[in-house]
Design a protein around this nucleic acid. Structure first.
Lengths: 174, 174
DNA sequence: TGCAATGTAAAACGATCGTTTTACATTGCG
DNA sequence: CGCAATGTAAAACGATCGTTTTACATTGCA
């Protein structure tokens, strides 16, 4: 396994569990089993490391929601929560932690949210047989809400979102 | 205006805009116009200050969502976003920043989320004429989703949630 | 008048931050 | 063989962290 990918994987876990700022470089190098010199040779800075983490997470996330129906979208989120836990959206969290003032992070977050919204639009179009931007916006809200309500309500929040999405889809079909 | 409430108000603004950890005590004392000695006499620690901020915010938030219908709930959120901006839920953010490991903060967040969920249940019961825990869970998800999608989609996210909630309510009535 | 409370300004505390540097070991390829 | 690349360990960088302390000013009340 590559040094960079090992580092990125370890960093994602630590950033996700303890927060971006609260995670020191010592914890990162120790978790990745590398020296700080190697870390800086490879990624340049802590912010750049976070940007890499977000880009990698976006890849994994987008692969998981490569589905054809709205119901499958929420089924994918149920899987995600079961496998990766529910501590809210790492993208929004890292952006908020830095007040949006770290360009590398803010850009990675913006790219992810754009891609996510576009994907939801595609899924809605496939499921409904036509585009429906209003329904897509509602599904985005339900997905985001499930992600964050799951922090304190657990997987039930995802189930609730899934059921609500089914009602909205049924109504859009009529 | 009381020293403590002036400090709490200044701290809420800074914590909300720049994050809990990223905001240093110097910025807080300067914004509140007090010395660090006075700050520590009054609140004891940074974590205790954040807990006070969250408790105060909870009071203000709960007063705003003291409504009788689901639609008014989302109208209140639209007001909140217009007045206070949209940077996500400060409760979840501060909990995530500290990894849930700061008891004073974690407790304030848990209290707020419990109160919020209970309030939504009451509003749903008033609007529908009977209790409906499943609908209440869906409204919670929509509300949380609107709060977080508004970070990157603006007030439109709240409108989408509001419309979706109306559909779910209509369906629950039938 | 004098004491207690409450405040400020500013220095100092040790710890830790992200980052760079120094010095040295290992390895793979010409 | 020898050099370039790539790594480690560890010290050091100046800055900043949350918190405490020292020394002093102001105020309100007995």
């Amino acid at each position: 396994m590559n040094v960079t990918s090992k580092l990125t994987a370890a960093a994602e876990r630590l950033f996700d569990r303890h927060g971006y700022i609260a995670t020191g470089m010592d914890r990162l190098t120790e978790a990745a089993g590398i020296s700080s010199r190697t870390l800086y040779k490879h990624v340049g800075s802590k912010a750049a490391l976070m940007a890499r983490v977000l880009t990698e997470r976006d890849r994994r996330f987008m692969a998981r929601i490569d589905v054809r129906t709205i119901d499958a979208l929420f089924a994918a989120l149920e899987d995600w929560v079961r496998v990766e836990g529910c501590r809210g959206c790492l993208f929004l969290r890292s952006r908020a932690e830095t007040g949006g003032d770290t360009p590398e992070i803010a850009e990675a977050v913006a790219l992810h949210k754009d891609a996510f919204h576009e994907r939801v639009g595609e899924v809605v179009a496939m499921d409904l047989g036509r585009e429906d931007p209003a329904l897509a916006a509602q599904v985005v809200v339900l997905f985001e809400g499930a992600t964050h309500a799951a922090v304190y309500r657990g997987a039930d929040a995802v189930s609730a979102a899934r059921a609500a999405a089914a009602v909205l889809l049924e109504r859009a079909r009529a």
